[in-house]
Design a protein around this nucleic acid. Structure first.
Lengths: 122, 122
DNA sequence: GAACATTTGTACGTATGTATT
DNA sequence: AAATACATACGTACAAATGTT
């Protein structure tokens, strides 16, 4: 019933950090714990932690700076929205869920997505 | 001049496979060489090859099936386009470039993207 | 500026598990 | 059952960028 009971470890780390960010407990601009710290916190290796943090980066939730750390990005849609993108046939939707959640904060975006969603074979 | 001269190895593998796919030399449904073969071809480790192929998967260019192999996905936008997505403030645009290229094949998508692009602070 | 510690980036080797053939 | 191929995960090493002393 746990939900994340059987999930791979990198995904548990990803989910945990994502919750920290989206719950607002770590705010935009805050630095995440170093990957060495995350290793100890989650009992995971560098590879596992690194993959989780990289996935957060790909999702646009954090920014990694070599020599400095990983920082939570500003997700204020009103300020950050720079362009629209149409993605054909995503295979790995997992990473894009956080993006969708951020997107939902923008009513115009939701409207546009709904407009486009049923369009097929244009 | 080289272009890919100083790029990391995983990116060279990614680029090489991407060219194979988008040039049409490997068609939709074709199976890529196994990762063990790619290791030999590029003189790279499993981790490096795996990252390149996973990035291709995240970009929606290939599908990985455990026990079987990695297959080139159908990128016919007319058939594959399932929904639109608006991505605020991408940090790692590299992976999304192949998606954009596929998107450009659809005139309605291009029109919609242009419509939305200049919209800020909705 | 220089030296040093910290932190992320890339890369290798290896082991084990799971799915497919 | 067995071989193949991807999936996850560990440990390690060195490079590059950054921050501090």
């Amino acid at each position: 019933m746990g939900g994340t009971g059987k999930a791979p470890k990198y995904q548990k780390v990803f989910d945990a950090l994502q919750r920290e960010i989206q719950s607002g407990r770590v705010k935009a601009g805050d630095r995440l714990p170093s990957e060495a710290e995350l290793e100890r916190t989650f009992g995971a290796s560098r590879i596992t932690v690194g993959r989780a943090v990289r996935d957060l980066q790909l999702a646009g939730l954090v920014e990694r700076r070599a020599g400095s750390g990983s920082y939570v990005k500003a997700r204020n849609v009103s300020e950050a929205l720079s362009f629209g993108l149409l993605i054909p046939d995503l295979g790995e939707t997992e990473i894009f869920e956080p993006i969708c959640q951020g997107m939902m904060a923008s009513p115009p975006a939701r409207q546009l997505a709904l407009l486009w969603s049923p369009a097929r074979r244009p």
